[in-house]
Design a protein around this nucleic acid. Structure first.
Lengths: 227, 227
DNA sequence: AAAAAAATGTGATCCATATCACAAATATAA
DNA sequence: TTATATTTGTGATATGGATCACATTTTTTT
């Protein structure tokens, strides 16, 4: 499953890795394994020990936490992006799970190597820090929206995020089922179904199976803003 | 208002600052101003530019965001702690506000000096990174609780946090009014009032004005866990 | 100490969503 | 291709908490 990597020639390097010199990249290459995953595979499991830094080279994953009553998807992570950086530093035990939702390639980097690079290359460290901070700010806003918006606005947000941020296209294959969408926006599967049906009837989106087409982006934005 | 600081002799240094050598501490001292604030004073204002790193040396502050419908308190920050580190790196514009809720001393550190220290002292940088990551993990869990728990459980959590984490005592002066508690746990002022009254009637807490006494911690923990 | 402002308590009513309970439709495995 | 499992659609009903509307208490200002 795991393959030797050639980080030097990798075209999907992180912004941070671009700051490494050839010698450092080689060190990284030696201590890094590339693994392919399919939908449903678990990359990080809440409650287990973290031993590697994971870098999502391609594909899509969900970061989720077992809440007191049900599962909650905290955010969708699209490539290229580090996964679970905060656990690498904040805690030895994984505070959340990460699961693949669309075929993915993941580089597992030895944690000692990663720390060595952080210590020796301040530019690399700075980029990693920027990355963590940007994510944190995003989580703040996501949390505020999740708790304050009504279902219709939240579904509109999900559709817009998939279209604009994740797939960068008006037509896409929704990688989450309705129960997962519910876990992402904190509502029940049934309510998600009702709103999606409503959006379709109103001609705002087109649905055929998992395929979604954004037909009226302006309406979606309006609904996102005004509930 | 602002005073020259003497970081070298400061007894309330951050874990990160403890990693600095004397020369670095002196540099910090030269580029740092200590300011005292009282309840209600604004330390960081959402939407403005961030120019300094703020370190809460003593006191208490709330980190809050203007949501689509109402204000939301994201977390309560107690000293000693950095304020708004993620904005320092993640964005030039403040994504949230920080306001004092109990007399506070804040050190404003010149951002260039801070960055210089990050570049030159990897141990310092590592501690700062740890700090950011721990906060991020905390925010994840807080967000899950806020959206999934019922009011009674959330009020129990607030009481326990104040008693155990913030004031480390069974008796304390609640620094938030009921509207603010509502903003912290996403509920209305009225509901907060009702639950607090209920807890008092049940003999779980004692209330006289702002003074709160935890009378039955076991009950609170039970309510926190089971709603 | 009096007046004004802010914070709190409490009933009555309303509403967005959850929950329950199935039917129908898709997807997956045998 | 049939059988089985998973996902989705939709009505009926229940409910936690929001909202509204005041009364009361506490705090702050003058």
């Amino acid at each position: 499953m795991a393959m030797k990597t050639n980080c030097l020639e990798c075209a999907l390097k992180s912004k941070a890795a671009l700051k490494l010199n050839d010698k450092e990249i080689k060190k990284l290459s030696f201590n890094c394994a590339l693994v392919r995953f399919k939908k449903g595979d678990s990359l990080i499991k809440q409650g287990t020990f973290s031993t590697n830094v994971a870098y999502l080279r391609s594909g899509l994953a969900k970061l989720h936490i077992a809440g007191p009553y049900h599962e909650q998807i905290v955010r969708i992570v699209n490539a290229p992006n580090y996964l679970g950086l905060p656990i690498t530093f904040g805690d030895k035990i994984n505070n959340y799970s990460v699961t693949v939702i669309d075929v993915a390639e993941v580089c597992f980097i030895d944690i000692k190597t990663f720390r060595y690079l952080l210590r020796t290359n301040p530019d690399f460290a700075y980029e990693i820090m920027m990355d963590i901070c940007r994510t944190e700010l995003e989580v703040y806003n996501r949390c505020v929206n999740r708790t304050q918006k009504h279902i219709r606005g939240k579904i509109a947000d999900v559709m817009l995020e998939m279209s604009e941020t994740i797939y960068k296209s008006d037509v896409f294959r929704m990688p989450l089922n309705q129960e997962e969408i519910g876990n992402l926006i904190d509502s029940s599967r049934e309510s998600v179904s009702r709103v999606i049906t409503e959006f379709e009837k109103d001609g705002i989106i087109g649905v055929s199976g998992k395929k979604i087409e954004i037909k009226n982006k302006k309406s979606l934005i309006l609904i996102s803003e005004n509930g």
